[in-house]
Amino acid sequence: MTVSDNNLSTLALAIKAWGRELGFSDIGIADIDLRHAEAGLQAWLDAGFHGDMDYMAAHGMKRARPAELVPGTVRVITARMNYLPREGGEQWRETEAARAAEPGQAVVSIYARGRDYHKVLRARLQQLADRIRAEVGEFGYRVFTDSAPVMEEALAEKSGIGWRGKHTLLLSREAGSMFFLGELFTDLPLPVDPPEQSHCGQCRACIDVCPTQAILGPYRLDARRCISYLTIELKGSIPVELRPLIGNRVYGCDDCQLICPWNKFAQRSELPDFDVRNGLDDVSMLDLFAWEEEEFNRRLEGSPIRRIGHERWLRNLAIGLGNAAAQRRGDPAIVAALEARAGHPSELVREHVAWALARHR
């Protein structure tokens, strides 16, 4: 279908208004020229920094070429959605840091404490597409929510809703980095927004704070050392030399975000979807380690955590309980819990439990 330039400009403004009505904190529009990002992507892949995430390399340069990924695409509508839970104090960063210092506490990345963001964003981006269709008739589009080889940060930066921080996550002056990204690839030639400029300056707080030194330098992340990768993406054994550095982070890691000065502007979500479930903002590793597979699946239904499965959940918790030995070596409750899992059917679990028990002896 053909839409006049004036109507396209009006439509772009309407899309941004509809996006906010649907709970998105910002909407931007970018063209699809990502040639500037291709060299960096290829170098990252060639260095093997993607680890076991084979899907990162499987599509080659399609990640940087939206029109090859979805033929007919000429624009990408990018959407940002805040995920800090609705309830919480202003000193949330200090609270999170204090929790990480408690050896018995389980630290779950903030984004994963509520409902699976894939479902939330996909549903609302689909609603946005439906609004557009109601306005202009049938049009070509495809929704993405961290579900395909899309260069989200590069597109979001180009669309003006933020800039890529030195930790490689997107940053916003109005919202820090505590938000999700989603995209709507479309064949509508909408007017584009100006790109955002970097506002990191000389700051390197995120680089210096990383527990495993996964951020090798500005914009250079070795995922193989990143705690989020190790506890979520990695399917097998976590390298022995990295286990002590994980501490009590049992699912993901927020350290580079907690230290970032821009996150003093982080905004709370307007949606109940990201409210904390199962007390995951204040729970002991022993309580979580006691969950059998049925309870794990039942409690975490609709949660992103369920994606890793009970086996890797126990693997991560075993490492956390082993690291608790730094302050609570030989703790009877911890030792008993580990010994109860020492004969687990999974070799992966048995290996990590044995490592943890050795730390307590």
Rank of each mutant, 00 (worst) to 15 (best):
G165H: 06
L288P: 05
N297I: 01
P272L: 13
L69R: 06
R359T: 05
A101H: 06
Q257P: 00
K166V: 15
L321E: 04
R63I: 05
F139Y: 15
N316G: 10
I319F: 15
E347N: 14
R80N: 07
D46K: 12
F24I: 01
E196P: 02
S269C: 12
A333W: 11
I259S: 14
R299D: 07
V3M: 15
A333Y: 10
R113C: 09
L121T: 00
A336V: 04
L314D: 00
I227T: 04
A98C: 00
A123P: 02
A214H: 12
W92N: 04
F296K: 03
E68C: 01
L171Y: 05
G236S: 10
D46W: 12
R124T: 04
P244D: 06
E347Q: 14
D46G: 04
L271P: 04
T212A: 12
R93D: 04
F265M: 07
R299P: 00
Y141C: 08
S4W: 14
Y251T: 03
V335N: 04
F296D: 04
A129W: 06
R299Y: 09
A14I: 00
E102H: 06
V150Q: 15
L286I: 00
N278F: 06
D275S: 01
M285S: 06
P261G: 15
I132D: 04
Q126C: 01
V240N: 12
G162A: 11
H310T: 07
W92R: 00
R361C: 03
L22A: 09
R113Q: 11
H59S: 12
A79M: 14
C206G: 08
A290N: 03
E301S: 07
N297R: 05
L125I: 06
R63N: 06
R93K: 05
I29P: 04
A43H: 09
G320M: 08
R298F: 01
A100W: 00
H118R: 11
E294A: 13
E351H: 10
D187C: 10
D33N: 15
A223I: 11
H36K: 13
A101T: 01
D282P: 01
P244Q: 03
I132G: 04
Q91I: 01
L317P: 02
E135V: 01
Q126A: 08
A342T: 03
Y229H: 13
V250P: 00
D116F: 06
T73W: 01
V74N: 08
G160N: 09
I319K: 08
G137F: 13
Y117W: 14
G28D: 13
Q202S: 15
S269L: 09
D187H: 13
G140Y: 07
A134P: 02
I246K: 05
A333K: 09
I308M: 07
M61T: 13
E87S: 14
P211N: 09
P304G: 08
L286S: 00
A106S: 07
A318C: 01
L190K: 01
S109I: 07
E293L: 12
G51F: 11
R75K: 02
S198A: 04
L22F: 09
A101K: 08
V150N: 15
F265D: 05
L84N: 05
